[in-house]
Amino acid sequence: MEITVSELKRVTLFVIQGRVDSTNASELGEALKSQLSSGRYRLVIDLSGVEYMSSAGLREMVTALKTARKNGGDVRLANPSDRVREVLELAGLDSIFEIYPSQVEAVGSF
């Protein structure tokens, strides 16, 4: 898994590549937390490069979402693959996260 973090003007953009599982989900959690703890509560996670995500990855995203919303922000997702979308749907997270078809739309939604 590779995480690229870009602090845009109003939003922090995370572009994730590869596989997110129990071996590396905590890295994603830490990356999200470091933005949240510096007061940046508007986050976009671009999932288009994620070929695999297990429940460990979902847990980190949900934890970040809770913190962001509590502080008036949000975590929005962009362009998950069919496989990852199915996982989100099974967990009922497709109705909890705002999901956008592209990174541009997700960033622009804030």
């Binding site: 297990s54 429940s55 460990a56 979902l58 847990r59 949900v62 934890t63 979402l65 809770k66 919303r69 996982v87 099974l90 967990a91 009922g92 909890i96």
Partner: peptide, 24 residues
């Protein structure tokens, strides 16, 4: 089993791994 219809506040984070095993 965790509840996929639960609201964000009601999610504790546990049990999803087994839930996915059963579903998949």
């Amino acid at each position: 089993e965790p509840n996929p219809d639960a609201s964000l506040d009601d999610r504790s984070g546990g049990g999803w791994g087994i839930y996915f095993m059963k579903k998949m």
